[in-house]
Design a protein around this nucleic acid. Structure first.
Lengths: 193, 193
DNA sequence: TCATTTATTTAACACGGTGTTGATTTTCTT
DNA sequence: AAGAAAATCAACACCGTGTTAAATAAATGA
C-alpha cells in the first residue's frame, strides 16, 4: 500500500515548510519572502527545501492544486444528484474555505494569489451558468462581460472580508449574502433580514 | 518663479525612470522588479535612482500621490456647484483614469497597487454616501459592511476590465454600468439598453 | 562669458539571498 | 544489522542592494 512519500521524514518537513509559508504569507507577499527565512523559521536546512520544491511559486502551486482537488472532491457528490442552485454550490465553497482556513492565506486575504481566487470563484460559477441563462438571453455580450467582471471581483472581496472577520459568520450566510447582492444589488440592504 | 526642480536634467531622468517603471509594471509585479534592471532600461545610472527615490515603493508612492492630487483637482469644480450624483463623480474618476492611462499600470491591472485602487474608489464614494443613506437606515451594520466589501471589489474588477479592453467604452458608460450593477444586481442585464 | 552650483556618471565596497555541490550524519525500511 | 533514502553541513560563484568618494557634465546667475 505504500508507494510514494511514505517516509515520515519527508512528510514532516513538508508540513513544517507549509506552516512557515502560510505564517509568512499572513505577514507579507510572496515576493518579499526569502527561502532562507522560511527555512530558518521552519527549522530545516535550506538545501532540504530545494530537494522538495524548486521555488516559492512551485510550493504555492502544489498547495493550490491540492486545494483545488479537495474542492472538486467536495463538490462531486453534490453534482451527482442532479440540479444544483448557485447558492448550494457557493455555500459548499465557503465551507471548504472554512475547513482550510490556514491555507486561505495562500489564496485570499492581503497577500493571496488573486489569480487562484478567481479560479475558485469560477469553479462554482461554471457549474451552473445555465441556471441564470434566462437573464442573459436578451443582454448584450458586452454587458454580460462587465457584469461578470464586477461580480467575480465582488465575490472575492466579500470572501476576503469574511476571512478577515475570522469566518464567524456561518458559511451559508456568507454565501447567501454574495448571492443576494449579486441578484438584487443595493436592494440587498433594504430587504427584511 | 523657479524654485524646486526646475533643472531640466532632473525632470528628464525622472520621466525616464517613470516610463521604465510603468513599462515593467505591465510585465511583472513590483516585488519582482529590480532597481538595476529599471535603470538599465531607462538608460540612467543606478546611483541616480537613489538620489531621487529611496525605493521602488517610494517611487510608486510619489506617482500615486500625484495622481490623487490630479483627481482631487478634477473633482474640485464639480463639488463647487452643490449636490452631485454618484454617477457624475464616478464618471469623472473614469475620465481621469482615461487621461492617465499610462499611469494606470501603477494602480490597476494585473500588477497594480490594490490598496491604492481601493483608495480611488473610496474617494468617489465618500463624497456622496449621504445620497444612499435612505437605503442604509434600516439595514444592519454587518450587512452594510459586507455589501461595501462586495461593491468596492466589484468596481475595481470592472475598472480593470475596462482598462484591459483599452478603454474603448466611454468613461460615462463604464461609470453607468458600475452604478447600475450596484443598484440593480443581475437586473442590470435585463433592463432595456 | 565665466565661475558656481547642481545633477549625473563611474568604480568600488560590504552585505545578504540564491541555487548548486559533495561529503557526512541521521533516520526509515526490510 | 545492512542498505536506502532523507536531512544536514559547509563551501562555492553569482547577482542585486545600498552606500560611498572622486570625476565629469550640464544648468544657473552675475
Amino acid at each position: 500500500m505504500k508507494k510514494f512519500t511514505n517516509d515520515h521524514r519527508a512528510r514532516v518537513t513538508k508540513m513544517l515548510i507549509r506552516n512557515s509559508f502560510t505564517t509568512l504569507l499572513k505577514q507579507k507577499p510572496i515576493q518579499s519572502i526569502s527561502i532562507k527565512e522560511l527555512c530558518e523559521q521552519a527549522g530545516i536546512n535550506r538545501g532540504t527545501f530545494y530537494s522538495h520544491y524548486t521555488d516559492l511559486y512551485d510550493l504555492r502551486n502544489q498547495i493550490e492544486e491540492e486545494m483545488l482537488e479537495e474542492f472538486n472532491r467536495a463538490l462531486e457528490p453534490l453534482s451527482a444528484d442532479g440540479q444544483l442552485t448557485q447558492l448550494q454550490i457557493t455555500t459548499e465553497i465557503f465551507r471548504c474555505l472554512k475547513n482550510n482556513s490556514d491555507l486561505c492565506a495562500v489564496t485570499l486575504g492581503e497577500h493571496g494569489d488573486k489569480a487562484f481566487a478567481l479560479k475558485l470563484i469560477n469553479l462554482g460559477r461554471e457549474r451552473c451558468v445555465e441556471s441564470y441563462l434566462k437573464y442573459f438571453e436578451h443582454a448584450s455580450p458586452k454587458k454580460i462581460e462587465y457584469f461578470y467582471s464586477f461580480v467575480c471581483s465582488g465575490c472575492i472581496g466579500l470572501l476576503q472580508k469574511w476571512l478577515d472577520d475570522g469566518m464567524v459568520i456561518p458559511a451559508e450566510e456568507a454565501a447567501k449574502m454574495a448571492e443576494d447582492i449579486m441578484l438584487k444589488g443595493i436592494g440587498f440592504l433594504t430587504e427584511e433580514s
